[in-house]
Design a protein around this nucleic acid. Structure first.
Lengths: 200, 200
DNA sequence: CGAAAATGTTACTGGTCGGTAACAGCGTTG
DNA sequence: CAACGCTGTTACCGACCAGTAACATTTTCG
């Protein structure tokens, strides 16, 4: 009843700014994206941007936070799709990552940001760290539920393979080592799940 | 006989500029490093820099090329240390990468650059691609010499683990998944080398 | 409606950055 | 010595960029 039609851009300016920033950050890098370009792409302006975020760095942090929240949502989807089935969730997770590797821009906003935020004290780095730590805890738990003997080892193996696939996609292209990511990661899961001591 | 003593900085200005650039690129990122800072760190000046390189991009390309050449030298060292021993070279390679993961800045200049050079047409990207392709060929050959059944698969597994370890080092720190890289990679090698069908 | 809050517009600042011009020094080599 | 090539110094340009001020407009809501 309030704003349900006739509005060319119905989401709030703040929302549009964050999404525009994430998109531009992915496409042109964080340092390569100016606030003017963000405001413009958000169909807004620089002043509104600075009324919601005291600095570009604050906006970066919000982008990272939102990316983390989207991942949280995805973990929930996985739990709903494979309730209590750790193995199923692990494999679905790997499959989904493999399917999205070529997505013009992998949603590796965390990794990409980690490389670009060279300042060790950048507030965004703590967001990345917290997200990565939480992700690791979650994956370890899934590995345990999958009945894997060396849960931490499978977890770290998968995390390394995933980060590697995203990095390889950037540097070697889709035909590089990342092309076999799904095959390799799934084999690792089955290997660990099958006999507790495979791969070790 | 020409310039062998008494010079506070004996390498040529060009040399110093490239090395200074590589160092600063690693520490502060490519976009975060200005040409003035490079010239200054090289104990030279901007004019000499621009007499050797027509643009910053050209300097970036030279940095990538030199990084690639250093890797070529390392492959030769491996061949000398383990002549004809593919398995030995593979394991030494992994060990060396693991040892240097924490090196203030991993020498992942290629990966780091690939993330930062968001422009798909940047001349540096082709250098990265060529280097990555050559590296893959080399590793596949080592896997074959190691008597591995699925050489390409082990090769891509190792490459993904390595890129992943470097990326994880950046985003999750030294205590993250990269801490177990050596263990995981070595297990993968032995698993493939032992029984031809492990992990698959 | 009417006031307050949020948003949009324009213009500006101070700083940085990539790149260039002009000139001066300095070592080599003939 | 003299000419030349490489290097260093200073100053500058135009573009861009993060952030701000002042003012106009629209939206929201009591």
């Amino acid at each position: 009843m309030t704003t349900d039609f006739c509005k060319p851009s119905r989401r709030s300016p703040r929302d549009r700014i964050v999404e525009a920033a994430r998109d531009l950050f992915r496409r042109h890098g964080i340092r390569g994206t100016g606030v003017d370009a963000i405001a413009d792409a958000a169909d807004s302006n620089k002043m509104t941007l600075y009324r919601h975020f005291n600095s570009k760095d604050e906006l970066i942090v919000e982008c990272l936070r939102r990316a983390g929240m989207e991942m949280d949502g995805f973990w929930q989807e996985l739990e709903d799709a494979y309730p209590g089935d750790g193995l199923g969730q692990l494999r679905a997770w790997v499959r989904r990552i493999a399917d999205h590797l070529g997505d013009d821009k992998c949603q590796c906003e965390m990794m990409s940001a980690a490389v670009q935020l060279t300042d060790e004290d950048h507030p965004g780095r703590s967001v990345i760290r917290m997200f990565k730590d939480a992700q690791r805890d979650r994956v370890v738990e899934l590995c345990r539920r999958a009945g894997v003997a060396h849960a931490e080892l499978l977890c770290d193996t998968l995390l390394l393979l995933i980060e590697g696939a995203r990095a390889a996609q950037q540097s070697s292209g889709a035909e590089g080592p990342s092309a076999r990511f799904a095959e390799i990661a799934d084999a690792a899961i089955l290997s660990f799940a099958g006999s507790g001591d495979a791969f070790k």
